[in-house]
Design a protein around this nucleic acid. Structure first.
Lengths: 240, 240
DNA sequence: CGCTGGATTGACTCGGATCAAGTCGAGTGG
DNA sequence: CCACTCGACTTGATCCGAGTCAATCCAGCG
């Protein structure tokens, strides 16, 4: 079975065969979770590092008023913070969206992997930098992009990330996110998101239906989003 | 002279005297910059790690339309990403707000510090986790908080951070941020921010004037913001 | 075959943007 | 020492994007 975690880290630099083995070994006993299951909740004391092998999850916060804000999506290959174990308690929750296979890597084991293989450490740090960069892009979207641009931008991001781990074809991929979830990601209501999706569909840019995103006109979508993929840092730095 | 960087890291755990010395040594040759000076720009190739010793700076992005989004504030003691050197190019810019003293710590030197002193590595990782947590709080604010809550929340955050490094008194501190800058942080216009500040002033919660924030009624401000300081992770994890 | 949770559409309202004038205060040069 | 200037702050009037409320609609499924 494909190990998306290994695939993703490979994207950040060459990994030698023994490194690949070590990673595969560390994630060889994943646990299975149902959809909509909290992997960890705000206030919990963090334990091992989560690594998504199959399925999607999302980070979120619930405000006192009961509203939810989605903070990030975890797709296969993604993992939560490396140093999560340093914290006394979580500042947000993580929940599965679909049924998922999740490897739990103990703190010691993760440290050993990173100490033992410089390549792993570098790839993990890169992944972390990209996650931060994505958060900055989200802040930028929420603060300064119109709603249709925001939606288009998120779709571009998710498409590229899916593409990078090989779960997207040329123009479509499985996107298991409800409109309510997307709305809670983008700081808008589900009603308004629905109208924006229609607008994008009518414009011939993309169609999101029955769990699948079809990008009808990539250039148009990119142009609406004002998308610049630079922030995903796929271009590697030569020599280190 | 006080070294805010050391002070800040101390807040994340005991540091032995030799560790403090090593940190002070590494930041002993800071450079002076004028206000409104870009330390690094989007697209630049990253170099050394910046450590703010005196003065304020902010991270930002400029969109094609020319609008700006502020992504984070750096106050004395804060530094940019540890692993910034892994990136081929910056995905955002960093600019001083006030005249500033900035130490530039080379990648090798920083690695040596962290390898040599477990306490430094832990404190630096904690600082990084807190920075991420703050970004999540910003996303939450922009997505799901009303404008007055957003403003109040940011003020609570900045006050606590200032307090943690000892530059805030019981109820006031120097906040050198223009209304335009704040508006660009919070996803609103300067005009509207001005009205919200007035609202907070009239409500007796806080007054921002002439570069100084006075918190008239802390409880009211906290209540308006729906502020929970948990996300700043000041409570330390017992044992590691 | 009816139930249920998501998706869709319409009517109405409102928070915050936009546009347009001022006002205030700290420098600066005569 | 005062007039001028420039940037930052205030305030008012108007408009519109997006929220709210309220019905459906529809697909999957027990």
């Amino acid at each position: 079975m494909a190990n998306r975690f290994v695939d993703k880290l490979r994207g950040y630099g060459q990994l030698s065969p023994d490194v690949v083995d070590a990673l595969a070994q560390a994630t060889s006993r994943p646990r299975k979770f149902a959809a909509k299951h909290d992997l960890i909740r705000e206030g919990d004391r963090p334990g091992p590092v989560f690594v998504m092998l199959e399925g999607w999850a999302y980070r979120y916060k619930i405000l006192p008023s009961g509203t939810r804000q989605v903070l990030a999506y975890l797709m296969p290959g993604d993992c939560c913070d490396l140093n999560i174990g340093l914290l006394a308690e979580m500042d947000h929750s993580i929940q599965t969206i679909t049924p998922a296979l999740v490897a739990m890597v103990g703190r010691g084991e993760m440290d050993a992997l990173m100490d033992g293989h410089r390549g792993i450490a570098k790839a993990m740090y890169m992944a972390q930098l990209v996650d931060e960069s994505i958060m900055r892009a989200w802040i930028t979207s929420m603060g300064r992009r119109a709603s249709i641009e925001r939606v288009a931008h998120l779709m571009c991001e998710l498409y590229l990330r899916a593409r990078n781990i090989g779960i997207a074809s040329e123009e479509a991929f499985a996107l298991p996110l409800s409109q309510l979830l997307l709305a809670d990601s983008l700081g808008m209501t589900a009603v308004h998101l629905n109208r924006v999706l229609k607008e994008l569909r009518v414009a011939g840019a993309m169609t999101l239906a029955r769990g699948s995103l079809v990008i009808t006109n990539p250039n148009k979508l990119i142009q609406i989003a004002g998308f610049d993929e630079n922030y995903l840092h796929r271009r590697l730095r030569d020599a280190a």
